[in-house]
Design a protein around this nucleic acid. Structure first.
Length: 780
DNA sequence: CAGTGAGCGAGCTTCCGCTTGACTT
């Protein structure tokens, strides 16, 4: 029985450490914070110096009672939570909640999980740093004040159940402002001129691709240049050779791992974190929520061994990286393989691929620079001033590139690392073909989940543990959607000079299309505009950085935490009051589109209780206004009067089929045809305003056929019970509930008796799980 | 689960950061 109790934050960590410390030490985990402000209450006593009112959340009661019991048995309790603001607060809450005494309590920290680091930590205990704890309390209280005072303003002024916060509202703002930049973007065309030259040497023909060093604004200029090139001579005027060095990227942090996994493996931010969690729990990698690029000396040595072993001495270069990102707290190491000599692991293919990425990135970070040679050849033209420039890149020594190359977000990044053929200064070249292509400037890119994380990290907003949850929150609130955006077809000119003839052609391309990008909804835009108008300080990109300055002062003992909060509250709270009591009408993003030609009433769009809507007429008129919801692809900001009026043509009656009416409408799940009280969804490309009765009949018949094929078996004595084929295999449908059929049973051979047994069995289990109340509440 | 929205009402919604689980269909 150990006389010492060590408490860490994570159970996986506890397991490893226990091995290092031996029998005298028992190691348990707190599973993160054990105490917090009450979930539903404001829980801050404004009158009483902003005193926080803490409680132990229900899901932490068990852990706390276990820790209490263990602490009672121990002579010394070692609080070994992380060495950052949150970790220090966890230590303090533990101290308080477990009723520990100072003489029996020691606070220790370690930066890496190695035997020596932990033994060293045990030798150097300290007291809890109350200043750092206060900095955390300030952070916590500020976030609660902002979130719980701002959100109700939105409920009153815009729509219920909305939310605002220091982090999420800025994330939404980034996405909204980017979308507006895109809307306002006007692409500019210019002509890019590329020539192909050839030369012959020792019977071999070489081809050289070179670009004209100016872009031409107009088609006339391009045509006139090409015309001159017909009779021009081309000479190599200059060749420069420049050595270029490339250094490897630092080891992974949470943010960079999310970005690379997204770029290279196509994982969502949440997916990456789930897979990394499994790798961490099985001891394959170090902790996955970190902002540090630091590697332990053990890891550096391990990497070196691998590199020397696999590639040789000349590839090894040990490097120490330092963190540059704002507000980094560096309580952990970088994300790296626990054992660098484990080149591959067992696991799912996802786990293998993510591990491989981490292994390569870590190894590469300890390798030598790549040495490249960049060659530039300038080709002069006899009758024009401009030059053609050809570049080539040769890898002289691959260094870290042998293992790993960092991905880029630039979709148009060209693979131009071609080798330049051997040309000499003064040499004459033959031009075989020149093409002038009309190119447009690129609009700013929409954010992906991963690029949003990078931006947030850059601004110091959010933490490694919250990047993924924040992205899911802003989607859940309906501020942002991850979706595809259709592009527009546009034409561009391609002029070719070949064999002395100029050909002029028009080509088509899709521009502006996007896949899986973050796009703001109408609600997102309206909420953002509201916050920017009335609470510009809170959604300022520098707000977090500013308050962090205060938190730093508190941590250094130079400022009292409740003074800092009082100072903020003094101006914030009156602004909240003022905004709530504002006389002005709901700030719901209303936009007036014009007048309905049929009735002469006003047509407008705005956010309603259930989302964006179009409206004919106003409330003060004698006739009540008419309403119609906007379609998913439409936006308050861009919808036209014609498009809005069309929405009122639905639901549309298509006539009868087998004596029953067919009605087309748009519902919560998109456009549909209703027939015989059944709904048939329209295919993506069908327009509910255009669809004909024949097309609708075809859809209905297809659906009926599908329904029929779904039925595996029915019983005449119990028509309400059916055995059906579903997405997840065969199941029994009975009284609006579905029941899974055990795999070992053949669904076609089941008797009514068997089915009743399965149902009775499932109902018995259900009453147990329903006690938790999760299912029922989630359904609503 | 495909009707909603313009005025009495009941009661609810919400923040950020630490950590892992245990549910189905």
């Amino acid at each position: 029985m150990g006389k010492n109790l060590v408490i860490v934050e994570s159970p996986a960590k506890a397991k490893t450490i226990e091995k290092f410390l031996g029998k005298e030490y028992r190691v348990l985990s707190s599973y993160g914070h054990i105490r917090d402000l009450k979930r539903k209450d404001f829980s801050i006593d404004i009158e009483n110096d902003f005193k926080p009112i803490y409680e132990i959340p229900s899901d932490k009661k068990k852990v706390v009672s276990e820790l209490k019991a263990a602490a009672k048995e121990a002579d010394t309790v070692w609080l070994a939570s992380d060495e950052d603001r949150e970790g220090e607060a966890i230590a303090w809450h533990l101290y308080d909640v477990l009723g520990l005494e100072k003489k029996d309590t020691k606070r220790i920290v370690f930066h890496e999980i190695t035997k020596s680091a932990i033994q060293e930590a045990i030798k150097n205990p300290r007291d809890i740093d109350k200043n750092l704890v206060d900095a955390q309390q300030a952070r916590r209280v500020l976030d609660r004040i902002v979130g719980f005072e701002l959100s109700p303003v939105l409920w009153r002024k815009i729509k219920p159940a909305l939310s605002a916060g220091r982090v999420q509202s800025v994330a939404v703002r980034l996405i909204v402002e980017r979308e507006r930049e895109i809307q306002q973007f006007k692409p500019e065309a210019s002509y890019r001129i590329v020539a192909l030259f050839s030369k012959e040497e020792n019977g071999k023909v070489y081809e050289i691709k070179a670009e004209y060093n100016k872009r031409l604004k107009t088609k006339e200029e391009a045509l006139s240049l090409l015309d001159k090139l017909k009779s021009a001579d081309f000479t190599v005027e200059d060749i420069t050779v420049k050595p270029v060095k490339k250094s490897p990227a630092p080891p992974f942090t949470t943010s960079t791992l999310q970005q690379e996994a997204s770029r290279k493996l196509g994982y969502s931010v949440a997916q990456t974190m789930m897979i990394a969690q499994r790798l961490y729990e099985s001891g394959k990698i170090t902790y996955m929520r970190t902002d540090s690029v630091n590697l332990s000396s053990l890891a550096i040595q391990g990497a070196k061994n691998e590199i020397v072993d696999l590639y040789g001495d000349e590839y090894s270069k040990t490097r120490q990286y330092s963190t540059k990102s704002k507000g980094a707290q560096e309580a952990h190491e970088a994300i790296r393989p626990t054992y660098l000599n484990e080149r591959e692991i067992n696991g799912t293919s996802q786990e293998k691929r993510l591990y491989d990425l981490i292994w390569k990135r870590t190894i590469a970070s300890q390798m030598t620079d790549a040495e490249l040679e960049k060659t530039t050849a300038t080709i002069g033209v006899s009758n024009v001033e401009g030059k053609f420039v050809a570049t080539g890149e040769v890898i002289k020594f691959d260094g870290f590139l042998r293992v790993y190359r960092e991905g880029t977000d630039d979709e148009e990044a060209e693979n131009e690392s071609a080798i330049l053929p051997p040309v000499k200064q003064g040499e004459r070249l033959l031009m075989t073909e020149t093409t002038a292509t009309e190119r447009y400037t690129q609009r700013p890119p929409r954010y992906t989940e991963a690029s949003l994380v990078r931006k947030m990290e850059e601004l110091g907003i959010g933490r490694p543990s919250t990047y993924a949850p924040t992205i899911s929150t802003i989607q859940q609130r309906g501020y942002v959607e991850k979706r595809n955006v259709e592009g527009e077809e546009r034409t561009y000119a391609v002029i070719t000079l070949k064999n002395g003839k100029i050909k002029d052609a028009l080509k088509k391309e899709m521009a502006g299309a996007d896949k899986n990008k973050l796009v703001p909804t109408d609600i997102g835009m309206v909420v953002n505009d509201f916050l920017v108008d009335y609470f510009p300080d809170i959604v300022d990109y520098n707000f977090t950085a500013e308050v962090e300055k205060d938190f730093d002062k508190i941590a250094e003992g130079k400022m009292q935490w409740n003074k800092s909060i009082a100072n903020f509250y003094k101006t914030f709270h009156p602004t909240v009051e003022k905004t709530v009591n504002m006389r002005t009408e709901h700030k719901t993003g209303e936009r007036i589109l014009g007048v309905d030609p049929k009735t002469g009433r006003r047509v407008s769009v705005k956010i309603g209780r259930y989302g964006a809507l179009a409206q004919i007429g106003t409330a003060d008129e004698e006739d009540k206004p008419l309403f119609a919801p906007l379609q998913k692809s439409q936006s308050i900001e861009t919808i036209t009067l014609e498009e809005a009026l069309k929405l009122f043509e639905l639901p549309r009656n298509l006539g009868e089929f087998r004596g029953k009416e067919m009605v087309v409408g748009i519902g919560r799940f998109g456009p549909y045809v209703r027939y015989d009280n059944k709904f048939v969804s329209l295919p993506k490309d069908a327009d509910p305003l255009e669809i004909t009765a024949e097309e609708a009949v075809a859809l209905i018949e297809a659906k009926e056929k599908e329904e029929k094929e779904k039925i595996i078996k029915t019983f005449s004595e119990e028509p309400g019970l059916q055995i059906l084929k579903g997405r997840y295999g065969p199941y029994i449908a009975f009284e609006k509930e579905n029941y899974k059929i055990p795999k070992e049973l053949n669904p076609t051979e089941l008797s009514l008796e068997d089915c009743r047994k399965i149902i009775a069995e499932a109902d018995k289990n259900k009453t147990k799980s329903e006690k938790k109340g999760r299912r029922t509440s989630a359904k609503k």
